[in-house]
Design a protein around this nucleic acid. Sequence first.
DNA 1: GCCCATTTGTCCGTATGTATA
DNA 2: TTATACATACGGACAAATGGG
Lengths: 136, 136
Amino acid sequence: MSIDPGSYTPIYRQLADLLRVRIEAGEFAPGESLPSETRIAQEYEVGRDTVRDALAALRNEGAIITVKGAGSQVRPQHDVAVVRVDGRARVAARMPSSAEKRQLKLTDGTPVLVVHREGRDEEVHPADRTQLDVGD
Amino acid sequence: MSIDPGSYTPIYRQLADLLRVRIEAGEFAPGESLPSETRIAQEYEVGRDTVRDALAALRNEGAIITVKGAGSQVRPQHDVAVVRVDGRARVAARMPSSAEKRQLKLTDGTPVLVVHREGRDEEVHPADRTQLDVGD
DNA sequence: GCCCATTTGTCCGTATGTATA
DNA sequence: TTATACATACGGACAAATGGG
């Protein structure tokens, strides 16, 4: 499979799909680095900006993380903290505000879980390392 | 408040902050269009690319939605469907796969809620129009 | 239905700054 | 210190979608 410049699907999206397949196939282990943007641009014969668009898409869907100066890697799996939610509650999810993102040290593509309970403050949990245990 | 090109905070981020403030102040109602990228670029005297970076940040945090050919608008609030979750369950949140994004017609910056229950199929709900009612 | 102006999307280029190793 | 890699910011050009007339 390769890139078709004549396709109606944008190149950066085709490239993101190709990289996603390689990631899911296990070609890059979690925590392992992908090739550099320049390298990928050479391999697929596209501009670096196009590569960056593809990597941005993968970041925003939580597939990879990127560290300035160091490169991109498959998103490492965190240990999951199971948070018990007693009693009746409302649970929602959303993207963090920029303040929450800083405070909780959230990477791009990481939502938060929000727990509302009667008479209590709202709880906000990072979704990349939290599961809720609810009910009963 | 204005943009300081000499700041250590990137221009596109300063611009995103400025626009976020204007949105939160109610200058643009939900569903109401923001000025065009070109217009914003002129107003703040920055390149269109910088404006696009700022708008992308706002999209990915769920603050706005953008429609090709039509512009960006403050994210309209959906009616929330409350989904009752009976019994014990595990609840998580993550960004949708590209397939889920298409199927559920999710806009950028919209996570999904995932409900795991013993002996049942996993349930996936769009977080921009779903809340879970859990417990008891 | 069609045309047209507007607007966003895609893709490329260059240059410079900053973080990492 | 040096080299590599990503981040930011500007520019231009054309494609594609929208909406109004």
